[in-house]
Amino acid sequence: MIDIIIDMVLLLFLTVMAFTILRLRDLLSMAMILGLYSLLMAGLFMVMDAPDVAFTEAAVGSGVATILMLVTLTLTRIRYEKKAAGLQWRPLIIVLLTGAALLYGIHDIPPVGDIEAPAQQHVADRYIAEARNETGVPNMVTAVLASYRGFDTLGEVVVIFTAGIGVMLLLGNGTRRYRG
């Protein structure tokens, strides 16, 4: 029962923070709140039995992403969003329609925690039953990440490598003269 209360309080905080980020015009404050939001999300993942995802979200989402945003704010010397963008009708209508479609889509999927849900039926049983014998790793997430789906992870590394090359090409290696 206490888990559900923690879960609901965290979800409430996350929703409030998302709206705060939406409203804030001071971009430095927005970066801070965004980091805090990621940290709370990591806590929520921990409550939902996903410690590996929680670590990664805390380190990467809350740490690296916040640093990247602060670096961008420093380099561009932008502190405030120009003119408080009032409520815009076209985006709002699109968002409300999408939200309604998603709500309609989720109303008949199995409830959270259902052991009979289709998501629990496919390969997960095998991973849980055999991962320790087949890979020798007690942590099933690590076993799936590095062994069963090793090619997935290779693809992920390729994406990071490509992004790194892209950032280096765009920003240079520090020797380029800044015109700004």
């Binding site: 995802v53 990467v60 961008t72 561009t76 998501a119 991973y127 990440l145 997935d152 765009l170 920003l171």
Partner: peptide
């Protein structure tokens, strides 16, 4: 145990998401 598969997919997605963010910020600086 809870299902490890969605957790693995989201681990990958978090890291790829930060790579995308870094790229977007580099573009913004330029």
């Amino acid at each position: 145990y809870s299902n490890p598969l969605p957790q693995v997919l989201m681990l990958t997605a978090i890291v790829v998401g930060v790579a995308t963010t870094a790229m977007a910020f580099a573009l913004i600086v330029r």
